[in-house]
Design a protein around this nucleic acid. Structure first.
Length: 240
DNA sequence: AATCAGACCAACCGCTATGCC
DNA sequence: TGGCATAGCGGTTGGTCTGAT
């Protein structure tokens, strides 16, 4: 099922431009999208006057030209959030980015690989991952709080976070949906705590139940984040 | 001033997920 | 239901920048 949207053949391969985008190309893409919206990345480059693949156009738009993109100057708060989200979600850059409005997955990924990976890696060497319980508040029905989550900053500790509030995120390890175990996060001891193992039997019994709850929650979180992130209020871009 | 190494980041590539016919 | 087309994600690459020597 591996399929490239536009795999140039020998006759047109040289026509496809690669490498850095020029200012002119940017303007062409912006102008085209402003006028016609995004109807089909694969077939857009030709009428837009671009010798690029649809994939390349999409990437350029999503990572650089899209409105409301913020570049550089990752704040301390954002950095903390990235670190914590990465601890919870692993390399799910799209999911992480959904909680960081204005940032792109590519930027977050690059920032992690260049700035945070080593630092966090060194810190985590002192921590031992263990199995434990995922805290879930099934009673949450507060429509005033958005489905996406943010994490408390270190100077504003929360007492008892619950899923669904702006202060909480379902706590799970990178692979918690398959083989590994969720991680109980207590904000008071966020920096230096991995919890002692709970009963494996209890965990096995509750794991599927937690999985089902979290699967639904994950959908809400991703949908909410993606929707907000897409700039869907811009009529020309709603089709994104 | 020249060179080199490491850091940074935009863009590419391979692959999976999803929707449609 | 299966196959095709497209969108999207995550890992990797390679060009450029910057600081050290």
């Amino acid at each position: 099922m591996v399929r490239n949207p536009f795999r140039p053949n020998k006759s047109n391969y040289t026509r496809v431009k690669k490498g850095a985008w020029s200012e002119e190309e940017d303007q062409k893409l912006i102008a085209y999208i402003k006028r016609y919206g995004i109807w089909n990345w694969t077939h857009m480059p030709t009428p837009a006057g671009l010798a690029r693949t649809g994939k390349s156009c999409r990437l350029r738009w999503m990572n650089y030209l899209r409105p409301n993109i913020r570049h550089g100057n990752i704040t301390k708060e954002e950095e903390d959030l990235i670190i914590e989200l990465h601890r919870l979600l692993g390399n799910k850059w799209a999911a992480i980015t959904a909680r960081l409005p204005g940032r792109t997955d590519n930027e977050i990924k690059n920032y992690w690989n260049t700035h945070l990976k080593k630092r966090v890696g060194n810190r985590n060497k002192l921590q031992i991952p263990t199995a434990c319980v995922i805290k879930v508040n099934p009673d949450h029905n507060d429509s005033s709080s958005p489905p996406y989550a943010s994490l408390p900053t270190t100077d504003t500790p929360k007492s008892e976070p619950h899923i669904g509030s702006q202060d909480e995120l379902p706590t799970m390890s990178a692979n918690s949906f398959c083989t590994s175990h969720g991680v109980h996060r207590d904000d008071k001891t966020l920096e230096n705590s991995w919890y002692s193992p709970c009963s494996m039997i209890e965990e096995e019994e509750s794991l599927w139940e937690q999985f089902l709850v979290l699967r639904d929650l994950e959908f809400l979180v991703n949908f909410g984040g993606t929707y907000m992130h897409s700039g869907a209020t811009d009529s020309a871009l709603v089709c994104m």
